[in-house]
Design a protein around this nucleic acid. Sequence first.
RNA 1: CGGGGCGUAGCUCAGCUUGGCUAGAGCGCCUGGUUUGGGACCAGGAAGUCGCAGGUUCGAAUCCUGUCGCCCCGACCA
Length: 582
Amino acid sequence: MRWSQTLIPTMKEIPADAEVPSHQLMLRAGMIRQLMAGAYTYLPLGLRALKKAEAIVREEMDAAGGIEIFMPALQPIDLFERTGRKTAFGNVLINFNVKRGDRQVHLALGPTHEEVVTDLVSKLISSYRQMPITLYQIQTKFRNEERPRFGILRTSEFLMKDAYSFHSSFESLNETYQKMYRAYCRVFSRCGLDYLPVEAESGPIGGDGSHEFMIPAANGEDQIVYCKQTGYAANCERAETGRKPPVIAASPDAKPIAKVHTPQAGSIEAVCKLLKCKPHKMVKTLIFVADGKPVAVLVRGDHEANEGKIRRALKATTLELADPDVILQVTGAPVGFAGPVGIKCPVIADHDVPLIVNAITGANEADQHYVNVNVATDYQLGTTHDLRNATGGDPSPRGEGTLELVHGIEVGHVFKLGTKYSASLDALFDDEKEFRQPIIMGCYGIGVNRILAGLAETKHDENGLIWPLAIAPYEVILSALDVTDANTLAASEALYADLKAAKVDVLLDDRDQRPGVKFKDADLIGIPLRVNVGGKGLKEGVVELKWRNEKDATKVPVADAARVIQEHLAARRIEEAARVPA
RNA sequence: CGGGGCGUAGCUCAGCUUGGCUAGAGCGCCUGGUUUGGGACCAGGAAGUCGCAGGUUCGAAUCCUGUCGCCCCGACCA
């Protein structure tokens, strides 16, 4: 393609509306333009990169045994009513009425396609002999994000690859899940992303039922913990910590307990402000109702209680925060003044709680707190548990190393669904013994746009984007440094023709611009290999080859240029492929 | 939905506090010329309902009210 004949509106200045690097750079590189909050047009460069990412996803899905289909973005609302997800999605589900003759048809724009695919399969599959099967599509999804942000990282309309697998047994589901997991690793490494598969909340199936694929990035919306030494990674909710129960004993520094008046100070923040202390010196006491019985849960003031862990520690099936009535019953005080001293219900504590010497906590009395509260003297604990979200600095659960907190961009998610949708949509099959049962499902999503955003976010320098060969809109940019010079023009055109003939993905910068402009633009749009054709080189009979991610150019005789460029590209492809796991 | 910020030319921004001639600059664009290896220079030119609506006023980009849009933080996010 010739630059002069396509549409690449690069910008020298940073648009005021863009804050994060991926947004700024993709805008400046002329890849995207915003239509409204959360909706972007893909211009030629952006579209080419997107298509390359899409092609990689498709290849890997096909290789993993996926079967491609294409489902409607328009969906009848009653499908969502049957699965209860009209309510679950709430405002996120874009839905509306349209008039057809004398009736109203209530439609939704698909935020995902579990309902549609399950409905389809319920009609097409009725026997264990037809499974397993994995169907996938690459489709535009619609979600009414309450707050679209970060350019194309979070939009209301986005391209998603969603795959759904159908099984007659959990063994079969596990097998496909592993295949998909491997395919995802291949997709993201082929795209040149530094990704992290993390354990995620697993939902109905439990165990190893869900992984998210995250790209560590400063502007990522999700927080995960990661241990460099052991490679353990999980989202904060899901993550175990490697902490051990401490020895529970009174501290030699313990001071006598005392009651202080703390009017209106019912939150950690308010108490800290009032008593001029730090949250980590406080004991947060939360009253839960587990299987109908109240229980007090103790965590350090600066920590977040984790309901999943609490439920497991209590071996309870249901767990919810207590309402004010129950709190008044067990503490004798309104919300915000609970504490372990003298409380009238069972107490469990996080490992870190008994380590707080001279702690501050609620006095189970309105507007009163205790200071200098110490375990073993003022309240008793038999043992402690892991009851809170993991955080930076916690020991890794794998025995060595320390967890660090990193932000990440979620680009993929694999999930063992079980029978949630098949049961509510009557997708049943007959097994070997003629028992009719719901199909077991898995689902697997990849945000295709986020592959680009993630790359832009993590692979750039002060001059612009740096695309890997596999995703770059063009592999080579041929910069004709002075198109008014006949020699330069002739040499550029000849090389361009040779490269095109050899099927090299090349962009010819044939604009009547000064070399400086062309260099800056080439760097900005991040084409991996730049070929400079200009008077200086031609005098010596050479052109220059410069990789975007390397500092120096190499000189190549004009006559060899087409061949050497192809060799360079081949070598780079091998280099990139070497990072892809089997 | 709570908090904050911003809407003036295609882009970045000045002007608004203290209302007053025909609304400015740089970049980009068009014309001509000189240039040509890291965002050139000279001369000329086109381009703006000052987000929109209403109000105050002799007079509003500027003050007031409303409204719409965009960005950021938070809440939310199968």
